[in-house]
Every structure is written in C-alpha cells, then in structure tokens.
Design a protein around this nucleic acid. Structure first.
Length: 624
DNA sequence: GTAGGGTTAG
C-alpha cells in the first residue's frame, strides 16, 4: 500500500472525476485511468471507487456494478490491495448491496483483520437479504471477540430483531446497549421504537420515544406506523395530532401511516383531509401514498373516490389492484371486483395471496360458486401460490352461503391444513342461515375446540336455537357462557363527526349526549311499531318490539351510534358507522327501517363487509 | 480526507 506516495495536489482530480461520473462509460474510463496511473492507486482512491460502484444506482445497475466489483476484486488480490481493511470492507459492502451474502461471508472469513465495520457489513448483508436470524447469529458471534457494537451496528441488529418479533432478544439488545455505552442517538432511538412496536411492547416503545433526546420525522413515523400495525389506530392518530401541534412536517411515510389508521378505523373525514393535504403540498399521489389513498377510500365505503385515485395513478401495482378488489368485494360489488381482477391479469400485474382473498370473498358475497371454485384452483395451478387458511375459509364461506352444506363439509374434510376458527365459524354461520340445528351442534364443538376462550360459537349457537324456537336451549347456552366466564368481545361502533371520533359500546351511557341519544332511540322504536315495520320482516323473532323495549338498557352499539348521528347532523346527511363485530339480523332490520323512515343513507362497515342502507333496503340483499 | 445506520401498503 502506498499511502503517502501521491502528490497531494493531483489526488483530488480523480476523486472529482468520480464525483461527476454519470455513466458506466465514465466509470470504466476512470477505472482505466486509475489502473494506468500508479500514484492514483491508493487506499483512498480504491475505497472511493468501489464505494461508488456499490452505491450509485444512477451510474450503473447492480449487475454492472458487480462485474466491475469482481474485476476490482481480482486486481486487489493480485496487487495485495485487498489486505487493506478499508478496501476489503468496501468490497464486502458492494457484494452486500448486490445481495451476495455468500461472497460477503467469504471475504469476511478470508480476512486476517476484521474490524467493527467488517462485522457490521456482514450483519447488514444478512439482514438485507431477509435473513434476520443469521444477522443476529453473527452479532452474537461478534460478542465472543473483543469488539463491541457501536450505534450503527445496533441499528442494524435492532432492525433484524424487529423482523424476528423477538421481544426477549430485543430487551437483551437494549441491555447490551447500556452495558456498552451505546448512545441513544436519533437512529438508535428510532430503531428501538420500531423494535419495541414490532415486538408488541407498545408501552415501552412510547417510553423510549418520550425519552429520546433528539427526534426527527422518522421517529414520529416509526411510532405512527408501528401503532397502526399493532391495531392502535386511535393512538396513532393522536400521535399524528401531537406531531402537528409540535410543528413537525409530515412526509409521505407519515401520511401512509395516517391513511392506514383512517382505513382501519373507517374515519373518512381525516382521510379526506390527508388527501387534500397531499394536493396542497408537493407530494405525488402515487406509489405508497396512492395505494394507501385507494385503500382508505375503499375501506371507508367511498369506492367511487377509491377508483378516482386509482385511475389517476401513473403506475398501478399489485397493491393498487388488490385494494380495489378487496374494497369492491367488501362493498358488495363482486362482479366489478372480478372485472378488476381480469384487467389486472391483462395488464400483466401478478396477483398474490391477498388478491385472491379479495377475489374469493367477492365470489362469496355475490354467491358465485363456480367462479369461486375456478379461481381457487388457479391459485396453485396457474399462479403457483400455496393457498393459505384464509383461502380455504373463503371457499367454505362460498359453499356455506350458497346452501351447499355437504360440499362445504367435504371441502373441510379434505383440506390439507387443520381448519381454524374462521373456517368452523363460516360453517356455523351457514347452519344458522339454513336452519341446520343438529349439524350446528357438532360444528360448535369443533369451534370451541380451536377457540376455547372466545364467545363466538356460543353466541351464534344461542341465536340458532332462538330462530328454531328452542328458547330453553338458547337460555342454557347463555348460562353456560356465564358459568365459564367467557371472554366476550364487546360490540363497539364508531362514528366520526367533524373530525371527532365518537365510540359507543353496547349499552354505553358515557357519552355527553346520552339522554338525547336514548330518547331518540325510543322515538325510533315507537315509530317502528307505528309503521308496522315488524310485520314485513320474517326473519326476526315475532316479539322484536316487545323484547327491544325490555332490553332498552342494553342497546347494540350501532344503534347508539346511529341515534347519535340522527340527532347531530342535518337531515339527509349520510351516516357512516364502523362496527367491530358483524351486524346482527335485528339491527340490520332496524337500520333498514331507519333509512326509509328518516330518509337517511346509512353506511355500516361491519367486521366483514359494508352495508349500504338506502330507503329501506340494504346493498347486501340481506345476505351477509 | 476513506468503509457500516432507522420509518411506508393490500
């Protein structure tokens, strides 16, 4: 190595050439100049040169960089330049960027001198190739040497740990950091917040976030996206509001996180605000943002707006199409969903597993049995995707809803994976729709086996007994639930008014306008009687009105939300309700009634799909 | 003066 050989005034010229290098030709030329000019052949120049090959996607593709790198590699071996740790680490980096873990490992293992950067580069190579276990293994191996990780190493190891979702490991890494005096700089802090969230420790993530001495937009993004991912969408939106009030400017990543939370919660107003914010700021509604907008509108029941964004996007990928397909399916527009699916194949966008969940649920909602069967077959035969539990569940649903109970049972019998609660639940639902009480009893037992501590099976079974006029059995089931202290998933409905999210639980009395809400409900039920609505509904038990009055203290959450919507908005304003469970048939009836008598469009998103109630009927055609 | 860093979708 000829470190101090170069006359200092000549050295910057080649470095300047490197910086202004714009094409592969330039790079090759520079390479040959270096090879011809002995005094250029220094550690610094080689390091810069290789680094340039590795890191400049404008100048060359990975494959070209790789070829160049291999040339340098041979040359370095011949001349002995490779014995220099800087050159070697940079070459390792080049291979890492090209995804060649094996080459990185080989260089690393053949190296007599390994510093922290060598270890970190190897760890990074594994982490980037989606081999987080290997990355962590190498990190632990480094612990057996005298080297200790610094901030940069920790960031990479923490992000590998996030991928593994291993909270125990994450905690150990955190301890390692305090033992080895790794600073909580903004990168490390962000990686820690992300790690705790992905590993499911929301409280600790918030604690780290709070204690970070320096924050940037990525810190906020990590928290918002992480909370959204953990299903803490309301919290995520609160963090966004705090971010706004602290004057931190959101970027694309922030807005994608916010839109996802809006989609999950079904809060259209804030979603629309984000859309207008994008319009007012230099953010293109494309890629991640475009897809998140499509998804938000679709999940908020505005499929028209979803399509508007979709068609204006420059590039539509599998995410854009899948959002539309899933959205259309949820909104009961199964045929259109299938049209999007065929368009997608025509323009050459390859579907994935989630796309097929959308396709099959579209078939299920519309009752297209043969289409569903054909698409299910194609998942593996044509698209080489292994069907997952959700796909089997959809098929059972398709058969069950169409009343093909025998087919559904046979499908479950021969499916290659053990059926889960969703599959048994679908079957149980079918038994309810088609009055198969005895079969329901068998299936309920299966459902309880796979989901012993949830109430779903009991609730449906008790409803099945009720509809079959077996009140005694229904009451018995309710008793059993009480005895076994079943975990009940509380029904919860949300309505957004002027940007404020109002949440109602069953029988909720915590709202500021509770009195008005309940008197509105009374009025609704009285009008129901007067209009004789009950006589028009065959699927609801005869003394619905009587029972409702008796149970006036424990109203279902969506009725509270609707009543609140009626008293808080101008006449004819559509009401949008999001419910965490499925709508029960009683509430479905009552909502149809309200939509007619009060002339309100009511859009309810339940756990599975949308119900658009207009003038006494529902878009699901009472089939859900 | 040289090499290694965090967040985003269905």
């Amino acid at each position: 190595m000829q470190k101090n050989y170069t006359p200092p005034q000549q050295l910057p010229s080649i470095l300047r050439s490197l910086e202004s290098c714009k094409s592969m030709e330039d790079l090759k030329q520079i390479h040959s100049i270096i090879l011809k000019t002995k005094h250029f052949q220094t550690q610094l120049v080689w390091t810069k040169f290789i680094s340039f090959c590795a890191l400049s996607p404008s100048a060359c593709t990975k494959a070209k960089a790789l070829r160049e790198g291999e040339g340098i590699h041979c040359y370095s071996v011949k001349t002995g330049v490779l014995s220099d740790v800087y050159v070697k680490n940079t070459l390792m980096r080049l291979y890492a960027v090209c995804g060649l873990c094996h080459a990185v490992k080989k260089l690393f293992e053949g190296s007599a001198q390994r510093d922290l950067v060598s270890w970190t580069t190897l760890i990074q190579a594994y982490a980037n190739m989606d081999l987080p276990e290997e990355a962590v293994r190498v990190f632990l191996e480094m612990g057996e040497t005298e080297l200790r990780a610094d901030e940069m190493t920790m960031v990479i190891v923490l992000s590998a740990c996030s991928k593994l979702k291993d909270l125990n490991l994450g905690r150990k890494l955190h301890w390692y950091m305090s033992d080895n005096k790794v600073n909580l700089d903004v990168f490390v802090g962000n990686a820690l917040v992300d790690m705790y969230l992905k590993c499911g420790d929301v409280d600790f993530a918030c604690k780290v976030f709070k204690e970070m001495p320096e924050k940037n937009v990525v810190s906020w993004n990590s928290l918002i996206a992480g909370l959204t991912h953990q299903g803490k969408c309301k919290e995520a939106l609160n963090v966004f509001r705090r971010m706004q009030s602290e004057g931190v400017k959101p970027d694309n990543v922030t807005l994608v996180g916010v839109l996802n939370s809006c989609a999950n919660l079904g809060v259209l107003e804030l979603g629309e605000w984000v859309h207008s914010y994008i319009g007012r700021n230099p953010i293109k509604p494309d890629g991640f943002i475009g897809n998140a907008l499509v998804d938000m509108y679709a999940k908020c029941g505005r499929i028209d707006q979803a399509f508007e964004v979709f068609k204006n996007m420059k590039k539509r990928d599998v995410f854009s199409y899948t959002s539309m397909i899933v959205g259309l399916a949820m909104n009961g527009q199964g045929e259109k969903a299938l049209q999007f699916f065929s368009e997608m194949s025509m323009v050459g966008v390859k579907p994935n597993g989630v796309t097929f969940i959308g396709v099959l649920s579209a078939c299920s909602h519309v009752g297209l049995v043969e289409e569903g069967k054909r698409h299910f077959k194609e998942i593996s035969s044509l698209y080489k995707i292994e069907p997952q539990m959700e796909h089997y569940g959809c098929m059972v649903d398709i058969f069950g809803r169409a009343g093909l109970i025998a087919e559904a049972l046979e499908f479950v019998r021969i499916m290659p994976i053990e059926p889960d609660a969703f599959v048994w639940g679908s079957l149980l639902g079918a038994c309810k729709t088609y009055g198969r009480v005895e079969l329901a009893e068998t299936i309920m037992k299966k459902l309880i086996e796979v989901e012993p501590d949830k109430d779903g099976a009991y609730v449906v079974m008790s409803n099945i007994y009720s509809s079959a006029n077996r009140q005694k059995d229904a009451i018995q089931i309710r008793k059993t639930m009480k005895q076994r202290k079943m975990k009940k998933i509380p029904g919860c409905s949300v309505i957004e008014l002027n940007g404020v999210i109002h949440e109602f639980r069953r029988g909720d009395k915590s709202h500021l306008r509770t009195k008005e809400i309940y008197s509105m409900l009374d009025e609704v039920m009285n009008r129901l009687t007067v209009e004789g609505f009950m006589t028009k509904t065959s699927d609801v038990s005869v003394d619905l009105v009587h029972v409702e009055k008796a149970q006036s203290l424990c109203q279902h959450s969506e009725r509270l939300a609707i009543a609140f919507g009626l008293i808080s908005t101008k006449s004819r304003t559509p009401l949008r309700i999001i419910k965490n469970l499925r709508v029960c048939s009683d509430c479905h009836c009552v909502t149809k009634f309200i939509s007619r008598v009060y002339q309100r469009e009511i859009i309810v998103r339940d756990r599975n799909r949308f119900h658009h109630f207009i003038d006494g009927s529902c878009s699901c055609n009472d089939f859900w």
